[in-house]
Design a protein around this nucleic acid. Structure first.
Lengths: 215, 215
DNA sequence: TTGTCAACATACCGATCAGTATGTAGCCTC
DNA sequence: GAGGCTACATACTGATCGGTATGTTGACAA
């Protein structure tokens, strides 16, 4: 958001921050926000609190950064597909496929992001970080909006079932995002299996939204 | 599980426990397990810790009871439908419709149950309550099994897409269960809207799993 | 009318943990 | 080679919270 005076220092700082974010994502994924201690994140880093608090002002700020990193990757990869070529069905399918794949590739980050700001935060540190909270909710809304627009186009073209776009995207996301609940990465055998799962889920979601031929 | 010597005492005890479970479900839903304090649950009850610890030995035990109550309601209502009449597609549709409706009707309990035992527990109090944990996982597996069997029947009958039943049920549940993430109950206007949402989600999920007519 | 027990409330303890304050080792600069 | 700064580590504090120990009150029993 504000990295501009980039020099060696800033670059190193960004890399150091990113290491912390990755470790934090893993621990947050395992235990959730409240049950994750900064000491546990530090331990996973092979370091101590000092290192983390040198780069982050609070646990909430670190948690937010995980979410932002996850959302930014999704936005960065999916938006071009949405604006690309093909009819609404083709674009939506490509978006879903990429979306599901990213969830599995970046599971820790994405799992944290998908579970979202689950109230655990709103009640607690809401006021302090109200501005950051808004911007994350904004990111999420923007992302859903990208899908909603393609869905809307598909509905207008008569390709998709006749539903309010915002409502149609809910089960669509559900079929895909649910994998963050059940998917457990196995050692080895990964690259093709991930693609296979992504195709299966995408196929399901597309059938759910496409206007069928039978009455 | 062990309520047998039922007398006035046991009956009152069960009712008292159920009140606690309801309040606990609301607070757990809002803040999650770790961020929910027993004092917060007591406050929602208009009571103090003493009341809760009179009936429950620990916070984990209370949390488990919420999950058990939620799973038991689902099992109790959906199993008869699965064993009922109709072909696989008709039964699965009725099950999905009822499932989605229950999620919305009992949102606090069901939201807690859907989010499940999210590791926040496994790491922490796992050993102490290993037995209870197993039985809850068992309940969840049993429930998914009910769906998997109907799905399997539908696949064998050529009604559903040709996928491993366990894999096909994932996005099916996803489309439905995802509502626990986005659904926010509004005052008034409820009874028919809930049914409408349930029908929409069920329709999506059924299209996702039905073998389409177009190639 | 006194004992008993369920059904709580109150008071307290010990552990955990976010955040802070204070070091300190290395590098860079001049 | 002295000051300064970055990138941490270490030590500490204050607050929260799960659990327990100890009341207290009313109903019922005998």
């Amino acid at each position: 958001m504000d990295a501009d005076i980039s020099s060696l220092k800033t670059a190193n700082g960004n890399e150091a921050r990113h290491e912390i974010v990755r470790a934090a994502a893993e621990v947050f994924m395992e235990f959730g926000f409240a049950a994750t201690s900064i000491d546990a994140v530090a331990e996973r880093l092979g370091a101590t609190k000092g290192r983390i608090y040198h780069y982050y002002g609070s646990k909430a700020e670190l948690y937010f950064d995980v979410q932002i990193a996850a959302m930014e990757r999704l936005l960065r990869e999916i938006e071009p597909i949405a604006q690309g070529e093909g009819n609404a069905a083709e674009r939506l399918e490509a978006m879903a496929l990429r979306h599901a794949t990213i969830l599995m590739e970046d599971l820790p980050m994405q799992k944290v992001a998908v579970r979202g700001l689950e109230r655990e935060l709103l009640g607690a540190v809401a006021a302090r970080h109200a501005k950051t909270l808004r911007s994350i909710i904004r990111l999420r809304d923007d992302y859903e909006q990208i899908f909603a627009e393609v869905v809307d186009a598909g509905i207008r073209d008569g390709l998709f079932v006749d539903l309010p776009p915002r409502l149609a995207t809910k089960p669509f996301f559900g079929a895909l995002n649910w994998l963050t609940v059940w998917y457990v990465p196995r050692r080895l055998q990964k690259p093709e299996d991930v693609a296979e799962i992504a195709r299966t889920l995408t196929g399901f979601a597309m059938r759910g939204i496409l206007k069928g031929a039978q009455p």
